[in-house]
Amino acid sequence: MNLYYYASPSTFYPLAGRLIPWFAALALVLTAAGLYISFFVAPTDFQQGEGYRIIFIHVPAAWMSMFIYVVMAFWSAIGLAWNTRLSFVMARALAPTGAMFTFVALWTGAFWGKPMWGAWWVWDARLTSELILFFLYVGVMALQAAIDDPRRSDRAGALLNLVGVINVPIIYFSVKWWNTLHQGSSVNLTRAPSMAHIMLWGMLIMALAAWMYAIAVALVRARSLILERERQTDWVRALLEAKS
């Protein structure tokens, strides 16, 4: 398979159309399995009781918020370097989903913080840098929406994406660099996770579900963006002809 072949919008469009149902189905199945583990298999936590179950949403959403931003910055860099049309489309298609996951991470964090810390919000390093991430997503979308010329809009947004990516390691390491309220990570690559295995599995399955969801949604959005941008081309005209 030639990857460059699919870098052209006219070949990517039908490919994405074929992939979307698979990612959507996987997202549904994984979400069902993840929720089942979250509520019916994972035991009550000995310190936090049932309140800890927020972890099954909070941690995957927070992972996604950072990861989607990095992927978005990656496509922005490719787009700026090689001026490939599809890269900018992908970067743009990911932003709303990333913003959604960031909002969910902040919201569930507040709903977890209130019963456990006694506060909906504190200006802790982790919370503050995650809030900045949310503003970055919203800022990129607002900037792109404010510029009419699509090429200039793409480039301006991509530049802001690249500048903002510095915030992602700050979020990740904030719990180590500043000793504030938010706890350190329970899962990382260098040591055994400090939580029960079944809880870890629930979290990982929910994270995988979030991945599949994000891919499906970004592909749907990318397809709409491609149609808009390629409307003058023969293949989009032929598609319209076939649809009507």
Binding site: T44, G49, E50, G51, R53, I54, I57, H58, A61, P96, T97, M100, F103, V104, W107, T108, F111, W112, K114, P115, Y213, V217, V220, R221, S224
Partner: peptide
């Protein structure tokens, strides 16, 4: 939810709302 109903369902409920909202906008 062992007394944590508001917080657990507030979290899962808002997540559901966000996902449904995004799908609708899409």
């Amino acid at each position: 939810m062992g007394g944590y109903g508001l917080y657990v369902w507030g979290s899962f409920g808002m997540t559901l709302l966000c996902v449904v909202g995004e799908l609708w906008l899409l």
